[in-house]
Amino acid sequence: MGAPVTAGGKTRRGKGLSESQLGRVLVTPAVIVMCAVVFFPILATVWLSLHKYNLKYPYLGQPFVGLDNYVKILSDGRFLNSLKVTTLFTVSSVSVELVLGMAIALLLNRPFKGRGLVRTAVLVPWALTTVVMARMWAWIFNSEYGVFNAILYGLGFIDQYIPWVADTQFALWAAMGADIWKTTPFMALLLSAGLQTIPRELYEASMVDGASGWKQFWSITIPILKPTILVALLFRTLDAARVFDLLFVLTGGGPGFATESLSIYTYRSLFVNLDFGYGSALAVATFLYVMLISFIYIKVLGARTER
């Protein structure tokens, strides 16, 4: 990942700290914060996951049970369901966002007037609080008075209003729609910034050779843009795989378990069932799932995240 290790800083004699010492001093606060809030706690989560520990039954104590919780996970249908929901949500949302985002980025790279307005428009879905957005979509998808139903009905696509977020069949798709709305503009923004770095001469040269626009797209745009695409995809995929706010507020993981993602199942296990042992094992499973995705992107696809 990182740049090759360069030998430690020059140790210059003189007043004050040397370059190398100053470097280490300056990063210390950041390291402390990250260790205190992320790296030690994840070890604590692993430790908790090896215990039976339910806050509802404090008198049972906190006996060590080894890998029992993990054995239980493997045969837990609800866990497998949440794995399926998370994967389906992630793969579907992110692929639509990529294709749509790319199309919009290509469009935005054409000359037109009113860039300020477009920039503002792009940033509205990005900046909007996910919880607020989720409640907003709940109203838009409302089964009785929702404007989404009214539009589809008006255009003749549906014969009767559909309870989008309360129907097992549609709830996850409704959530994906909301996610796509929120993140596609952002994806377009990143890709469009990448497009601007491609030298115009490349296209002009290939046009002289008679290459069509479609061919140019595959032979020039995509190869040059690949690093940007991979990084954008990596972070979008991770966000989608960690999805919590949107589903928690829009559908509450329901109806039934139809939209219960890994994060939501873990949250419920921890803070509804108060099962801190099993919940922590689910948390570790979620962690491993997310790390597996990063591994695939970085090692297999070669996403370069070093800045």
Partner: peptide, 28 residues
């Protein structure tokens, strides 16, 4: 600045950026 441990810090930052918050709420 050039200093030892630069790569380690970059890896830590990257790890935090990918970290699922839900994985640490129980001990926190």
């Amino acid at each position: 600045l050039k200093f030892k441990g630069r790569d380690l810090i970059l890896s830590m930052v990257l790890a935090v950026s990918m970290f699922p918050g839900i994985a640490i709420v129980s001990p926190l």
